[in-house]
Design a protein around this nucleic acid. Structure first.
Lengths: 224, 224
DNA sequence: TTTAAATGATAGTAATACTATTTCATATAA
DNA sequence: TTATATGAAATAGTATTACTATCATTTAAA
């Protein structure tokens, strides 16, 4: 069975939908590669254009600027993750198991899953860890938010908050705890790799330790 | 009693020590103002130079580039905060009270404290909330880390971890919990103001609610 | 007072971020 | 079949950014 996963993206994220043309798909595929390699700061449309044999102007036809492209990539990631979470939690009724699986999906390393040819989910996951928060840490968050560019992130947050309330309907901060799980699942992994003394995971580089930490944090907080 | 607080900064953070000259202090004072106003992305040495009546080249004599200046500002902030924490927790023996005061100091709004003339701590606090993580979310974290540029952040993390262990010597993740407190004290405030649906604080814009959330999170996690 | 350090003024470069115009290919309609 | 839209791509440009180099002048320490 071969399925092609298509994620419907907010129209405001792009000038022209990159999924509908060969060039657009190349932009997605190789921007992920380039940003992963050199970081978002060093990433330019010119370098990308050279890599895919197009021109700077060609890429501007798809994305207003590189920041919008970053928002697009992170939005895609959160949508994909929400789908993955929904899929994995399907038919599970015990909220304890749900939360454990969820934390696992958030913090554990992603393997490129071939359900989308031009998106390398593993690289994208690493990009979201290292660059993701730059998507909203700007002077124009509020306008971007009005355009609903962060909806996928919010949807995931709502999903997690709902499971938390399923576990304990009296818990008072389900959304803030949800963002804490999401952000820390990423940040603790980043710290573990680059600033290990800010964590308790030493140089082990084992994502499972982050999972343990988060499970402890979450279940202590929400137990009745 | 009028005291002047002097924070000893890592020599690698600057080319020439900005605290020792009039121009240097102006760079600090007005870079805080400019970054706060327009955000770090829109901030340039040229604009800063114009504002303080100097030249671009003049500023490069103090800081290698604007990213180094950002690291300097955040490092200064963490050092200042560690001092403040140490000061406020002095003579308190009960780790519960210590942790509560600590969370208050981290998440509550800062009032400019006049102990340093050319640093507006209130603005700097807001800069660290919105731009702080850009200091380490780079491709060159590891090299910067080797130069010990993030030591002030780590020191604060150690201090908090120590108090956590004081409260419960058997708690297994004191450092990760410490960074979680620090990061969430900032991020939840940012979300509350700009992406409120990611939190449980609605549009109240009341930092005290973040304090409540963090207290709950921390004490649940570390209770024996 | 001498001497050194700090600053200011000027100029220049390479790269970046973005725009405008033209060219080219293709699809459709007369 | 030919004329005419339409859209993609190439070319060429501009303003700004992020620096570096040089040199004259001011300021301050020895």
């Amino acid at each position: 069975m071969e399925l092609q996963l298509q994620i419907k993206m907010n129209e405001k994220l792009f000038v022209r939908n990159p999924e509908q043309t060969e060039l657009g798909r190349k932009i997605i595929e190789f921007s992920i590669q380039l940003i992963h390699e050199n970081g978002f700061e060093a990433f330019t449309f010119k370098k990308l254009a050279e890599l895919i044999g197009s021109t700077e102007a060609g890429i501007y036809r798809y994305f207003e600027n590189k920041h919008r492209l970053l928002i697009y990539l992170t939005a895609w990631y959160w949508s994909w993750l929400e789908f993955r979470v929904t899929f994995h939690l399907n038919n599970i009724s015990d909220p304890t198991i749900k939360l454990k699986k969820l934390i696992q999906l958030l913090a554990a390393n992603v393997v490129d899953d071939d359900s989308t040819i031009y998106v390398n989910e593993s690289l994208l996951h690493q990009i979201v860890i290292a660059e993701g928060s730059k998507a909203y840490l700007t002077k124009h968050v509020s306008e971007d938010n009005k355009d609903r560019l962060f909806k996928p992130y919010k949807d995931l947050c709502s999903l997690i908050a709902a499971i938390i309330l399923e576990y304990n309907p009296t818990y008072t901060h389900p959304r803030s705890l949800a963002t804490t799980i999401i952000e820390m699942a990423h940040l603790q992994v980043f710290f573990m790799h680059h600033l290990p003394s800010l964590t308790d995971f030493g140089d082990s580089k084992d994502e499972q330790l982050v999972v343990d930490f988060l499970e402890d944090l979450v279940f202590c907080s929400i137990r009745k």
